[in-house]
Amino acid sequence: MKKLSKKALNKSFRNWFYGHLTCFSQEHMQTFGYMCAMLPIIQELYDTNEEQTEKTLTYSTFFNTEPQVGSIVVGITAGMEEARANGEPVDDETINGIRAGLMGPLAGIGDSLVVGTLLPILLGIALGLSGGGSPLGAIFYILVWNIGMFLIMRFMYFKGYELGGKAVEVLVGEKANAIRDSIIMLGTMVIGGVTASWINITTSFQMLGSDGSVIVDLQKTLNDVYPSILSAVFVLICWYLLSKKRLSPVVVMLILVAVAFVGVLLGFFNPGLSY
């Protein structure tokens, strides 16, 4: 009965924690980080180089997910690899099926919970502590984010290892869907809050009467309709271009540059700054 040592697991986790995206390319994304994370596991479980090579190649298929939450997948496959080394019926298809099946759902959770909710909140607090150029906010963020994330990722990794193949039931069952949808719901709300709090798109368009008095102040009118409506409108336009027109973010940004240029020419936008 083979059992992975704490040392191998820790090394595997560290490889993932540090190396999951150090060698990124559009073609392989996190694949090489994944293989590095599995290497200590495979080296401990199998003795001959042929076996090790064969098992390592299992993990050479494409992998990409939200890496913080995704460390649970690495833990799961470590558990499954251990089961396979002990002669349980686990083949390449099972392992890669689980990896492929978890990539999408976990990316959804991670993007809405970690980068969509946690990061903006922590950065928001840090910005609040940075008044007058105080380094307190930055230090707060460095400590809380790094220590917190290390512990969370470590917990996820070892939880995944403990559950092994059983984790799939926990992560993709009906109940898991309910949890995921609820988390994404929370994330969507906070993203709405981020839009309102941190995006500030305003117009300077005004219609002046012949005596120079302001007849229509568009921004004020819009605020009466719905506060910060322009910020929401621009996010929706960008969303439409990205997901319905399938444009790349770079193209969308170029469109925004054109919009800004025309808007400034027409007097719709005016940041009102001078040297």
């Binding site: 969509g116 995006i199 990205l242 973010p249 925004l256």
Partner: peptide, 12 residues
């Protein structure tokens, strides 16, 4: 707005 829209694309 682009950054938020990318996030939104993931969750909507």
């Amino acid at each position: 707005a682009v950054g938020v829209a990318i996030l939104l694309k993931q969750v909507v």
